[in-house]
Amino acid sequence: MGLEQKLGNLGVVTTTLEQAVNWGRTGSMWPMLFGLACCAIEMISTIGAPQNDLSRFGMELMRASPRQSDLMIVAGRVTRKMAPVLRRLYDQMPDPKWVVAMGDCASCGGIFNNYAIVQGVDEVVPVDVYVAGCPPRPEALIHGLLTLHAKVKQEKLVKWA
């Protein structure tokens, strides 16, 4: 009494392991519920507002615990006081993990070129995708995430940690 008897002959799909795994990883990426500043509000808009609806891409589920998430969206400016905390959160995430720097402040410091702000979160954690904008529109964030998906789909078996 297997699945075949219910659905008829499903046939066989052949693919590479790489493609199957990468497809799975992009299909249910869980971002960490981690908002810092202004961009976090746009992130809420992206995830919460029905107009944008991030769940189309299988990632509406935000996890508050870093141990359950595989994507960190750094939404907002990172201060010198926050940077060690950010790094610790990143270290707590299980592999494989990705980072999106959302907005100008996270990407390069934005308009705040001063003593308190880290000039780009890439000084603290390795960044995969930078999203420009102050703050980026929800569409821009979605584009950034789709870019990340495209990147993940290119990942090679040999590079898996």
Binding site: L36, T79, K81, I111, F112, N114, A116, I117
Partner: peptide
């Protein structure tokens, strides 16, 4: 608190009155 201290007040002192508005 202070995890989002951006130094806005100090930074505004380095800009003209009009340009400080964006902060």
């Amino acid at each position: 608190i202070g995890y989002l201290h951006t130094g806005i007040e100090k930074n505004m002192e380095a800009k003209t009155f009009t340009k400080a508005l964006v902060m």
